[in-house]
Computed example of a mutant assay.
Amino acid sequence: MSPRNDAIGRPGRVVELGADGFYIVEVGGGQVPAYLSDRATTASLEIGSVVTLLPMLGGFEIVSTRTGPDESGGMIFGPELLSNPGFEAGIPGEWPNQWQPAWDFRTGEPDPLDVSTDSPLSGTQVARVTSPPGIWQHNTVVLRTQAARVDAGATYRVSAFVSAKPTGATDLKVDIEVLTAATQDDAAYFNPAATFHLLAQVLAPGEAWPLLFADFVIPTGHQWCRVGLRSEAAAGSTVDVRWDSASLKQRLA
């Protein structure tokens, strides 16, 4: 039996051990029966195991598993929802499947953005945002990702590590923002159908790779979420900001 072409992996947690390879899984506020696929990483599960489900014809298939709490204070999270969260695949990628710079309406060009191998936090690459002095009004760059499918009413954690080289930028600040909307097309900047959430902000982050993170709840009726990593400084400032290990996961416990 094959998954539907439009199948999207959904996180869940095992609440009851079934027979003949079937389990009862809590997902999206309800409970569904699901069987353990031979694609899963373990041959058995326990109550509390975090799993990823794919819809099948007439049921659900467990395609990946993880047991035990996440390292973040004992909390349990679902699978990673961002594509290329560590920027190892490079940027920009083919829209809308990878990270892209927001379009600069003042110059008619994309914001300055590339990858760097200079002192990554993990892996071999970071996203590097640079802006020369002289940009009108505010020196602002937004690195945005593709829209991810989410569940209305569920809690999600968004995070990223950031580092800023000492360039003498004035009033430098960085933040994580998300857009949520009912459809994938609506989850876009300057779309009145989207809801904007400014979630985490750090002033003058320095080079030590502080972690920005925040939990947020998807509004009723919304099913898509887009993440933005923003850096901003006073006009005339030179900016050199690095992002690494971004993440968007559903918080299960």
Rank of each mutant, 00 (worst) to 15 (best):
R149Y: 06
F161H: 15
S44Q: 07
D240Q: 06
D111L: 04
S245R: 13
E80G: 07
P33N: 05
N5I: 01
V15Q: 05
P166Y: 05
V227F: 06
V129R: 09
S237R: 04
E232F: 09
G236P: 05
N84H: 13
G228I: 03
Q125T: 06
S159D: 02
V239H: 04
Q201H: 09
Y156E: 00
T130I: 06
D175F: 13
L179S: 09
E88D: 07
E80S: 04
S44T: 14
T238F: 15
G228Q: 13
E94V: 15
E71K: 11
A208H: 10
V202Y: 06
W103F: 15
S247D: 02
F105Q: 14
R157D: 02
L179T: 10
S64N: 13
K249E: 05
E207C: 04
Q98F: 15
W136G: 08
T183W: 04
A154T: 01
L172W: 04
G29L: 01
E26H: 11
F196Q: 13
A164G: 03
L45Y: 00
T41V: 11
P219S: 09
A235Q: 12
L113D: 14
V25A: 12
V141L: 12
G168D: 08
A34L: 13
T155Q: 01
C225D: 02
P132R: 15
C225H: 03
G168Q: 09
F216H: 03
A194S: 09
M56V: 04
L81G: 11
L53S: 08
R149I: 01
F190C: 07
R13V: 01
T117G: 12
V158W: 03
A208S: 13
E109L: 15
Y23M: 07
C225V: 06
V63K: 11
V241N: 15
R128I: 07
V241C: 07
D38R: 08
G59H: 01
R106S: 10
E61K: 02
P133K: 11
A194P: 00
I176K: 10
T140H: 11
G123K: 07
A160Q: 02
D244P: 06
P33C: 10
E94L: 13
P79D: 02
T180H: 02
T195D: 01
S231T: 14
A89T: 01
A193P: 05
R4K: 12
T107C: 00
P219G: 12
S49N: 12
A187F: 00
W99I: 09
V51T: 04
T42E: 06
A182E: 08
T167V: 08
L54C: 06
P192E: 13
T67F: 02
V63T: 14
L198G: 15
A19N: 05
R230A: 15
L113S: 08
